[in-house]
Amino acid sequence: MRVLGALLRKELRLELRTLESVPGMALFSVTTFVVFHFGLNRPNIEGDLAAGVFVVTILFAGMLGLNRLYVADQEEGGFDGFLMAPVDRTWLFVAKAIALFTYLVVVEIVAVPAFGLLLLQPSILPVLPSVIVVLLLANLGFAIIAALIGAIAVHTRARDLIGPLICLPLLIPVVIGSARALEPLFTQGGAGTLETKWLLILGLYDLVFGLLSVAVFDPLLED
C-alpha cells in the first residue's frame, strides 16, 4: 500500500508539473464536440447519437492519455528505477491504472458540461448522477486496458499506433455498455431510466480484465 501511494504520488506530481496529458485530452474532447457539430451539421443532438458521439469522443481522448502513459518511464529510465526497487511489480500497473482513471475523471469534469452546453438538447442536470455512475465504470475499464496495453505498446517501434490498434477492439464491450446505458439518459422528452444490464456488463468487464491484468502484468516488466 505504501508502494502504491508513492507510485501514485509520483504519477500525479509528474502530471501536475508537466501537464502533458490532461489539458491536451480535455481540449481534444471539447474540440471534437465542435468538430462533430460541423460534421453532423446539427445545432444539437440527443438519444443514441448523443451517447455515441460522447462515448467515442471520450474514448479517443483517452487514447491520447494512453500514448503518453509510459513514455516518461521508458525514456527517462523510470522502468529501470522501479525494477531496482524491491517491491511487487504489479503495483506499477495499479498506480498507472488509477492515475489514468483520475485523468479521465478530470477530463470528464470538463467534457460533460461542455457536451451539455454545446451539443446535448435535453438538459444533462436531472440525469447527472446516473451519467456519473456509467462514466466511472467505463473509466475503470478503459484505465485497466490502457494501463496494460500501454506497457506493451511503449516497447514497440510504432507505439502510438500499436497501442490504440490493440485497445480499440478490446474496448468495444466498454463502448457498447456505456453508449447503450447513456442512450436513454440522453433522450429528449422525459429521460429514460438507467438499465442495470449495461452496468452489469461494464462491471463484469472491469472485474474480469482487472484480475486478468494483475495476473499477466508481471512478465511485461522483466528485463
Binding site: I166, I172, L212
Partner: peptide, 25 residues
C-alpha cells in the same frame, strides 16, 4: 515472446466476453 504471450492470454479471455457483450446488445 513475453509480450506476445501476454497479448494472447488477454485476447483469449476477451473472445468469450466479447461474444457475451455483443449478444446482449
Amino acid at each position: 515472446a513475453r509480450y506476445a504471450s501476454v497479448f494472447a492470454i488477454v485476447a483469449g479471455a476477451f473472445v468469450p466476453l466479447n461474444f457475451a457483450a455483443v449478444r446482449a446488445s
